[in-house]
Design a protein around this nucleic acid. Structure first.
Length: 113
DNA sequence: TGGGTGACCATAG
DNA sequence: ACTATGGCCACCC
């Protein structure tokens, strides 16, 4: 149980905050963890509002299932997302996380229920 | 109240 | 291998 509130957005934000430094996950994985596996679009939609949250949400650690930085245009600058990832020792090439599988962090598997 | 939208994903051709 | 399409459902007019 991530949050008592049934707020979908809130739950997404909570999960994203749990992503460790130097790791990434996918929209689908988060949606799956929240029990809405087909609603991965909602996760992306939620991230759109992540900047407005009181608590910091490391949305740069969330990429699509191919490891592509599809949301980079929604950051302050298009290169910010890649920049933040590289600061966490995650290599990015052509908008794609190198060795994405290696860094992949699946909430279902990593969070102890 | 209802329809459009989206930082996605899986499947079909 | 690549493109098209449908589903999904919370959110915002």
């Amino acid at each position: 149980m991530i949050s008592n509130k049934s707020d979908f957005f809130n739950q997404v934000f909570q999960v994203v905050r749990l992503i460790p430094e130097g790791r990434v996950t996918s929209y689908g994985a988060i949606a799956n963890y929240l029990g809405a596996k087909s609603s991965s679009r909602l996760v992306g939609y939620a991230m759109n509002a992540s900047h407005a949250q009181k608590e910091y949400v490391p949305s740069h650690r969330v990429v699509n299932r191919n490891g592509q930085l599809t949301g980079k245009h929604h950051f302050a600058t298009p290169y910010l997302m890649q920049d933040l990832l590289e600061k966490e020792n995650i290599a990015v090439n052509k908008d794609t996380v190198v060795n994405f599988k290696n860094y992949f962090w699946d909430p279902c598997f990593e969070i102890i229920l």
